[in-house]
Amino acid sequence: MGEKIDTRQLLVVRRIIYLLVALAVIVPYLVKLPLPFAPLEDSRKVFDRVEALPAGSHVLISMDFDPSAEAELRPMANALLAHCFQKGLIPVVMTNWNTGLTLVDGICKEAAGKAGKISGKDWVFLGFRPGFTDLIVNMGENLKGAFTQDYYGKSTQGMGALAGVASLKNIDLIVNVAAGSTVEAWIAYAADRHKIPFAAGTTAVMAPDMYPWLNSGQMAGLLGGLRGAADYELLVRQPGDAAKGMQVQSVSHVLLIVLIVAANIRFFVGRRPAKRGA
């Protein structure tokens, strides 16, 4: 037990673990398991905030991610847009990640197509502009000056979807679906500065860092990772990829917990004789 670690044995164990994780992800897709889940309070707060808006309100959704975070954030963005369209809200979509442009375009078109909504009238995709924080500051002063055209080349001046929106101050809610550090900038330069309600949907890796904002009330609600996306899908009664992924997620987590416990037992049992010999 107190023997030197055999690297070959470790390699075999590692490959077995990879295989087990692969099975834990594939099998639940093939076999239906009774693993229900209820939406978290933080996710419900985002839903309630959107739900409380009257029809015709403008919701700015900044989708700051690219295909590397698609698995977690696309279902979230889909559910958010579906909710906005259900409620008759006007999503004003943009992105601060130029590598995510075509992805966000696809998300918008898919959601709008399902809801039968028209670009420029019921929703708008402003696209990308360089600058990030400077852009947010600029939008706080003059939104149509910051984005003179939408992604499809239509002038924002006189656009129906932006009627009554001169700057960020006329936006009723900002939601940042993010895979990077844009959340803090949105809070500092838009939400806190202009007192605009703000919510975020982030990758799971980022979610723990969001709790101080949630605790202080600077963030109205939080969708954290695939779980947050699944919660939102349930709340808008449109279970999709994320809700289906929760069963897989649960099985994988059980496997990982078992592996962590087993590895710790092996570690402590293996350490004891070495101590005695010392």
């Binding site: 994780v21 594939i26 897709y29 977690e72 723990p208 954290g224 990772g225």
Partner: peptide, 25 residues
């Protein structure tokens, strides 16, 4: 706090794997 971050990181990485497996299947 590090434990919570680690748990969320594992969840995030699994989500990416789930996304790829979903695509393949």
């Amino acid at each position: 706090s590090f434990g919570a971050s680690y748990g969320y990181t594992v969840m995030g990485r699994l989500s990416l794997l789930i996304g790829r497996v979903r695509f393949l299947m």
